[in-house]
Simulated scan of single mutants.
Amino acid sequence: MNNDKIFQKTEGRLYRFYEDQQKIKCLELECIDLGQQKERIRKDIQETNVFIEEESKSITYEERVQTSSNCTSYAERALINEIDKLEKEWIYVRKKLLKKRVKIRELEREISNIKNNIEMLSEENKRFIELKYGDKKSFEEIGQVLSMAKATAYRKREELINNIRIWINIIK
């Protein structure tokens, strides 16, 4: 493979690194929300905090007892049905939460060697990489933020990409 292709592939990996980091943050927020939902559902099940419809809307003051062949009243059946719905919802939310956590771990494994490469850089170089590939700033904007000329920013990119490429090949 020629150097231009390798350069482009390395840059692509850096762009994906920052995109994947953003995906991980979003997935973590979703996991927090799902965890809270799961806990609320669990609490509702424990407290049996469910709404039971009235058996009859008639305005009589007589106590009606309805029996059935399975020896459970309407209220008991309604309560059991509501708890079953809550348990199914709890299982659904738990599965979604587990799938999201699996996705987070997969993304973390994919980006681990690029992350390690970036961690080894100096603070100035890390900032350059973050501005260029994370924030997608132009060379002029990077030059203004880091107080360097546009030409220096181009050279810095070439140098950093080549160093990262070498370290990626060593780590593999």
Rank of each mutant, 00 (worst) to 15 (best):
N3G: 05
D4K: 13
K5R: 11
F7E: 07
F7T: 07
Q8A: 13
T10F: 04
G12W: 05
R13V: 06
Y15R: 10
R16E: 13
R16G: 07
F17H: 11
Y18Q: 07
Y18A: 03
Q22E: 07
K23L: 00
K23E: 00
I24A: 00
I24G: 00
C26K: 06
L27K: 03
E28Q: 12
E28L: 09
C31F: 06
I32N: 10
D33N: 11
L34Q: 04
L34P: 00
Q36E: 13
Q37H: 11
I45W: 09
Q46R: 15
T48S: 15
N49C: 14
F51W: 12
F51K: 12
I52W: 12
I52M: 13
E53P: 10
E53Q: 14
E55W: 14
S56W: 12
S56K: 12
S58K: 14
T60D: 13
T60F: 10
E62K: 12
R64L: 15
R64F: 14
T67P: 04
T67I: 15
S68A: 14
C71L: 15
T72Q: 15
T72S: 15
T72R: 15
S73W: 10
Y74G: 09
A75W: 13
A75Q: 14
A75T: 12
A78D: 13
L79Q: 13
I80P: 04
N81W: 09
K85S: 14
K85R: 14
L86N: 03
K88Q: 13
K88C: 13
W90R: 09
I91C: 06
V93D: 01
R94I: 02
L97K: 03
L98H: 06
L98Y: 06
K100S: 08
K100V: 09
R101D: 01
K103W: 00
I104N: 00
R105K: 11
L107P: 00
E108H: 04
R109Y: 08
R109A: 06
E110W: 01
I111A: 01
S112L: 03
S112P: 01
S112C: 04
K115T: 03
I118H: 02
I118F: 03
E119N: 07
M120V: 09
M120G: 08
E123G: 09
E123F: 12
F128D: 02
E130V: 09
L131F: 10
K136R: 10
K136P: 08
K136Q: 08
K137P: 01
F139G: 01
F139S: 02
F139A: 03
G143A: 05
G143D: 02
Q144K: 11
Q144W: 06
A149N: 14
T152L: 03
A153K: 01
Y154A: 04
R155S: 07
R155L: 08
R155Y: 04
R157C: 11
E158P: 02
I166F: 09
I166P: 01
W167P: 05
I168Y: 02
I168P: 01
I168S: 05
I171Y: 08
K172S: 12
K172C: 09
